[in-house]
């Protein structure tokens, strides 16, 4: 059965983030004044990386269950890691954990145990800064993604299939990206094809849509293209999506419109996760 390979240090899997850093990402996000799409992407990606690292953390260190890559595309196409990881393509997650470009302190409201909220300082590691320059070479970015993943799958032929998370506002400037995306999802390990999640960040203030199974209600042609090219959720992911209250229909795809991607990390299976740990 596909998508059942164990994720372990001897048989790691891979996460590849493909991030739109084009000029249009400086536009406001979801109609929110003051927040640019590029800020939303950098925040979302830093949070996803943080959650992935935490998921692999034990007290003796971070276990290398994954290799991680971040491709940025805009003025240039290539690794978007900063700091000590700058220029690197796929790196073991323990290296990601050890090398954020910087660690911010952010305020978080937490329950004070007496019905109120109290502000607490939390650490927020940053690997990626908001960038918004020039065109949207999506085809070139997906071609690089396919090259990197071919290398990974050749080295780990029985791995849980790599997961690609592509975050964009959807307007490719170097041609129709459909073929390049299909070339990505055509890559397979013995456990199944690469899974592509497309996250569409729009300036359009439409309500968020997560994991639809049809394109009818999507607001524009960019959203429809990103829906069509996204992978179907695996049965395990469908189960988790159900538990999280998304009510996905059969055939639901890894497509999110103006929404967040918490499900992707929640649905990774590296062992027992207590139901009372949220």
């Amino acid at each position: 059965m596909a998508y059942t390979a164990e994720i372990s240090r001897t048989n790691p899997s891979c996460f590849l983030f493909v991030i739109d850093q084009s000029g249009s990402m400086a536009d406001p996000f979801g109609g929110e004044a003051g927040k640019r799409k590029a800020d939303g992407v950098a925040d979302a990606l830093n949070r996803l990386l943080q959650n992935l690292v935490i998921k692999c953390a034990k007290t003796e260190g971070v276990r290398d269950y994954y290799s991680i890559g971040v491709i940025g595309y805009g003025a240039r196409v290539g690794s978007a890691f900063l700091g000590a990881l700058a220029g690197q393509e796929l790196v073991p997650i323990s290296q990601v954990a050890a090398n954020p470009a910087r660690i911010e302190e952010r305020a978080k409201k937490v329950d004070d145990g007496a019905g109120g909220l109290v502000e607490q300082k939390v650490k927020f590691p940053v690997w990626l800064e908001p960038v918004a320059h020039q065109g949207t070479p999506m085809v070139q970015a997906m071609t690089l993604a396919a090259n990197m993943l071919q290398g990974f799958v050749a080295a780990h032929p029985n791995c849980f299939p790599p997961i690609v998370i592509h975050i964009t506002d959807g307007e490719s400037t170097d041609g129709d990206p459909t073929d390049a995306m299909q070339n990505v999802t055509r890559i397979a390990s013995s456990d199944g094809n690469v899974l592509l999640f497309n996250v569409h960040l729009s300036s359009n203030a439409n309500a968020p849509i997560a994991y639809p199974n049809r394109a009818d209600n999507l607001p524009d042609q960019y959203a429809r293209l990103l829906f069509e090219t996204a992978s179907e959720l695996t049965p395990f992911m469908l189960g988790i999506a159900q538990e999280q209250g998304y009510n996905p229909e059969p055939g639901a795809r890894g497509f999110v419109f103006n929404g967040d991607l918490a499900l992707v990390v929640q649905s990774l299976d590296i062992g027992t996760r207590p139901s009372n740990l949220r």
Binding site: D269, G271, T272, R273, P274, S275, N276, L277
Partner: peptide
């Protein structure tokens, strides 16, 4: 893979 477990953090043992 999602059993209810005993937590060392009392706040996680509501039920």
């Amino acid at each position: 893979n999602r059993p209810y477990l005993l937590s060392s953090n009392p706040a996680r043992n509501d039920a």
